[in-house]
Simulated scan of single mutants.
Amino acid sequence: MSILSKLSFKDQAFKLREDAILDATTRILASKGFDLMTMDDVALEVGISKPSLYKHFKSKEDLVAEAMIRLLDGAQDYWAAMPADSGPLQKLKTLLEWAVRVRLAGGLPFLPSTSPQVRDMLTRNLRYVAKVVKLNGTLKDTVKLAKKQGELRQDLPDDVILFSYYARTCDPAVEYLRMYAKMGEDEIVGHMLRVFFEGVQAG
């Protein structure tokens, strides 16, 4: 039984509206960025009044933080759903593919990397920080295991591999390939994975 089905009708409606608000926030942030996004933009996109929006989120900062937390939760859920027999390198490839597809769909895998203001704001959000630390720990352990099993290059420090991995999720090449090279989603994803993993995989 899903969490939503356990809620009262009123609470279900509230949760569904909140999800719609976060979806709208993600789309607007993808197109306008944090600085230009307003609460009016979000309310208009969802089709609700601004007072109704403030019943869910008291500020733009809280709204963006919750959108980022939901994204991290999505990454953790996707990781947890991978087959138990997947090797560490395969898990890293699968999650990066997910992240690039989220990006192509208008998601924001690592918005803080492009906005110091957002980064500073999120570092003060303890829920967000705890989830980042958890995901980073999982990925760092996976990189170590992949190196131990001979799947990743031994001459590259773990942090070089890990931070380069994160960088691929916010690489502007994704947009350029779609806009100017006229590539489809599957083609872009395939190229982005090859560009990264062919550089870090053991020969």
Rank of each mutant, 00 (worst) to 15 (best):
L193M: 15
L152P: 11
S59K: 01
K147G: 12
P172C: 02
R178E: 14
E175Q: 15
A84H: 01
M121D: 00
D23M: 10
R127P: 00
A130F: 03
M192V: 07
V42A: 01
L193D: 13
A24I: 07
E185T: 14
Q154L: 14
V132Q: 03
Q117W: 07
A80S: 12
L22G: 03
Q76E: 10
L152E: 07
M82S: 02
A146V: 08
A173Y: 13
A13S: 12
R17I: 04
D120C: 06
D11N: 10
D85W: 05
G203W: 10
L135S: 05
T169N: 09
F9K: 12
L44W: 00
I28Y: 04
G107L: 04
D85H: 08
S5W: 15
K148C: 02
F9N: 07
D19H: 07
D35H: 13
A130Q: 14
Q117F: 08
P157Q: 09
L71W: 00
A80Q: 13
L36S: 13
R178Q: 15
D120Q: 10
D155E: 13
E66T: 09
R103A: 12
S164I: 06
C170Q: 06
E45G: 01
W79M: 04
R194C: 06
V132L: 05
K10E: 15
F196H: 08
M121G: 00
K144E: 09
D171Q: 13
E18K: 15
R17A: 01
P172Q: 03
K6W: 13
Y176K: 11
L126H: 07
L44A: 13
Q149A: 03
L16Y: 08
K58T: 14
C170L: 05
R124H: 12
Q76C: 02
P83Y: 10
A75Q: 06
G184W: 04
A202S: 08
R168C: 13
E185W: 11
D85A: 11
L71S: 02
V133K: 09
V200G: 14
G150R: 05
Y180S: 06
K134T: 03
W98T: 06
E175M: 15
M1D: 02
L29Y: 05
R119V: 02
A20D: 09
E175A: 15
A67C: 02
I161H: 12
R178W: 14
I21Y: 11
S113E: 12
L96W: 10
V143K: 03
G107A: 11
T123L: 08
M39Q: 15
R119Q: 12
L122P: 10
L89H: 02
L139C: 05
L104F: 05
L44D: 13
R153F: 01
D85Y: 06
A181I: 06
R70M: 04
Y128H: 09
D23Q: 12
D23K: 14
L139Q: 03
G137R: 12
A24D: 11
Q117G: 10
K131C: 08
P112Q: 01
S164F: 11
I28T: 04
S86F: 15
R101D: 05
E61I: 07
R103C: 06
I3M: 03
T138F: 01
